[in-house]
Simulated scan of single mutants.
Amino acid sequence: MDASTSATDENATRPAAIKAAARQLLVKLGAGGLSLEAAAEDSGLAVAEVEGVFPHRDDLLTALVIDAYNDSAAAMEQADAAAGAAGASAGTRLLAVTRALRKWSFDNSGEFTLIYGSPVPGYHAPQDTVPAASRTPAVLAGIVRSALAAGELTPPRRPLTGPTLLLPEAVELFGGAPEAPFSDLIERGIVLWSNLIGLLVFQVFSRTHDSVRDESAYFDFAIAVAAEAIGLTVPLDENTHTD
């Protein structure tokens, strides 16, 4: 292998090496403590080499944010594909994808904190992060849309009335506004999404460990409760609960 080939290989692998070091730093220092100097030290590179890939700290943070959204959504998409291939109901699919996101969140707590924890001082996520961030609600929307088409939803007892609360982007992501009696389904779906992320924040940051005896079973229970707001039944395996 000549010098030019070796240099090309190094340039190709350098971004991954830098991001791998940065992900470890997220756990040790938090996103606020991340710097190009620290990433260089932990990746065994010179600061100038890191700056050649990520000129500023915010560029590195943005790359990590995009990766985190993409990786977590991919885990959900894979779980949904497997559940769908097995002929699962929409409620079972919902439980599968939320469990997948929960596992990813615990396995990657630094990245979870980066995208769902406190804002990083001085950092504002650019528009480049939106497509990756949209994949998570898109998975949920796809399941809800399938449930609607399959007649698996129970109409709400108290439909929302008044002017729409939605941005056009939310309606587009869902695939159009549903008709009555499910005309408020997208709003309810956003509540489900919000409940999911809030529940994960509580569990990843150990806010429920002193309240429930089985956090995994409680997670399933909470998803089932949240799903009731959109009229979807999530089947629970009572054997997963402990006394």
Rank of each mutant, 00 (worst) to 15 (best):
D42T: 14
S43L: 01
E49G: 04
L60N: 10
V65W: 10
D2P: 15
R93F: 00
G84N: 10
D42N: 15
K28D: 12
T5Y: 09
A22W: 06
G91F: 00
V97H: 05
Y69R: 05
A17M: 11
V50C: 09
A3M: 11
L25Y: 03
V27I: 15
A86I: 10
A68G: 00
G44N: 13
A74G: 11
I66S: 08
K19Q: 10
E10G: 14
P15T: 03
Q78R: 07
A96G: 03
A86C: 12
T8Y: 02
G44S: 09
A21K: 01
A81C: 06
A21H: 00
A7N: 08
A31G: 15
G44P: 03
M76V: 04
A81Y: 09
V97C: 01
S35Y: 04
V97D: 01
G33L: 15
A46L: 13
D59H: 15
T92L: 14
A40T: 02
A96N: 00
H56Y: 13
L60W: 04
H56D: 13
S72W: 09
A86M: 05
G84L: 10
G91T: 06
V97E: 01
P55A: 14
A20H: 13
P15S: 09
V50A: 05
A31I: 07
A40M: 00
A48F: 08
G33C: 06
R93D: 05
S72H: 09
M76F: 06
G84I: 04
M76P: 02
N11I: 10
D71P: 00
L60Y: 03
L45D: 07
G84W: 07
E51F: 10
D9R: 15
L61H: 09
G33E: 14
A86E: 15
T98W: 03
E51C: 07
V53E: 03
G91Q: 06
T5A: 12
H56A: 13
D42M: 11
E37Y: 11
G52W: 11
S4G: 05
D58G: 08
V65G: 08
P55W: 15
A63Q: 00
A39R: 06
K28Q: 13
T92I: 14
V97L: 01
P15W: 09
S6H: 12
L36D: 05
A75V: 00
A88Q: 07
A82P: 01
A63Y: 05
F54Q: 01
V27M: 09
S35W: 10
A74V: 08
T62D: 08
R57G: 09
S4R: 02
Q24L: 14
Q78W: 02
L36V: 00
E51W: 04
A83V: 07
R57H: 09
V97M: 00
E41Y: 02
T8M: 11
S72M: 10
A81W: 08
D59Q: 13
L64Y: 07
I18V: 15
V53H: 03
I66M: 08
A96M: 04
S6K: 13
A96K: 02
A74K: 12
A83Q: 03
K28G: 11
